[in-house]
Design a protein around this nucleic acid. Structure first.
Lengths: 197, 197
DNA sequence: GTTCATAGTATCGAATCGATACAAAATTTT
DNA sequence: AAAATTTTGTATCGATTCGATACTATGAAC
């Protein structure tokens, strides 16, 4: 008997494999490997508390040494910028350069994904997101790594007014767009995992 | 604005990355790389029409040359067996060896996934499966590759009696367990993509 | 101030991966 | 039937990722 969770895992693996191929295709013009495209997409989505080599390594499930190499290449190509953190001078902050943003806009790595999911209703997407998010949260708990998640589904994300949010974890103000990015230290709100939001 | 399909893609990527790490961990004792574990899992799930190097290459999104190398390694380790097809003598058929099955049973590569999804209801899993299956079907259409899917959700899979099924595509009889495996030439039944089954 | 932990880099060897070329079998065309 | 073409899989090569280890620099603990 083929258990349903196995089927789900198989679908996830296969989708990831296909997108990996797509990333390879998309990056081939610039001589970029799939992992480089993934790194750029990460930097596009991540918030300003989590844009470090360490976070990227944990996100990709690779060692920091490996990721350091990839970042070196992206830096040499001028696709990213690295700068020192103001407070903790050990940490390096990463951001997309203008060239990097241009590359993502032109090559559009997730374009194929968009067209493939075009006909799936927003409700069905939301529902699946909540299921996968639950699985991810559990999985991240077991592996001991940090928990990546969208900022505005986090218990520490407080809405102060219509436009102003506040993160009680880092103790900083957040703009609206910032709350839709991915954070390394997210703690899901109760209920956001068990029900479709 | 972070669009929901992007969030879904991000979740899938991240889950795949984590499972890839898990596969690396699981295979390290035997000196196996993640891709080897994936190959073994593929052979565990695939039906007897699709257990070829070519199918595996398409499933993994790699070239046949690359996959040929991985199969060589798995063969040397005695984890798989390769034998010629009776009818078309160009094609090589693959199957797990006793050792290969034992490795999967002992190392249990999807064990972590099982525990992580333990508390997700069967209904929610089924629903997500139907959504991801729709995305996969679309994606596979664009990339031109074959369409992998579970046999019993295929239009060619006919139920003759309680125990006997028939594939009108390959023109062969199928046992019950066989209809729950993955086929390379699956064509989803209408409705199985748009609604939770 | 000494010790320890953390973030990142450098270097090295092992292994994947794609590209190309190749061999063998099947299919199609002539 | 014979030749050309297609398909399936393998072999070899170089480029690149990747983990492991060692190392530097900064911060934290005591």
């Amino acid at each position: 008997m083929l258990k349903n969770p196995v089927v789900l895992l198989d679908l996830i693996s296969r989708l990831a494999n296909l997108m990996r191929s797509e990333f390879r295709r998309v990056g081939s013009d610039e001589g970029l490997q799939p992992v480089h495209v993934q790194a750029l997409l990460f930097l596009e989505q991540v918030n300003r508390f989590s844009n470090t080599p360490q976070a990227l390594a944990e996100y990709l499930g690779l060692t920091k040494g490996t990721v350091s190499q990839s970042l070196l290449l992206l830096d040499r190509r001028g696709l990213i910028e690295r700068y020192q953190d103001e407070i903790d001078r050990r940490v390096v902050r990463l951001r997309l350069s203008t060239l990097g943003e241009a590359f993502l806009n032109e090559s559009n790595p997730s374009g194929l994904w968009h067209t493939a999911t075009r006909d799936i209703s927003a409700n069905r997407v939301r529902y699946s997101v909540s299921v996968l998010r639950a699985a991810l949260y559990e999985l991240q708990g077991f592996t001991g790594g940090p928990v990546f998640g969208v900022c505005n589904t986090c218990v520490y994300c407080q809405r102060k007014s219509q436009r102003i949010h506040h993160c009680t974890w880092f103790g900083e103000r957040l703009s609206g767009p910032e709350t839709r990015k991915i954070c390394r230290d997210q703690v899901p709100k109760t209920g956001s995992l068990s029900a479709a939001d």
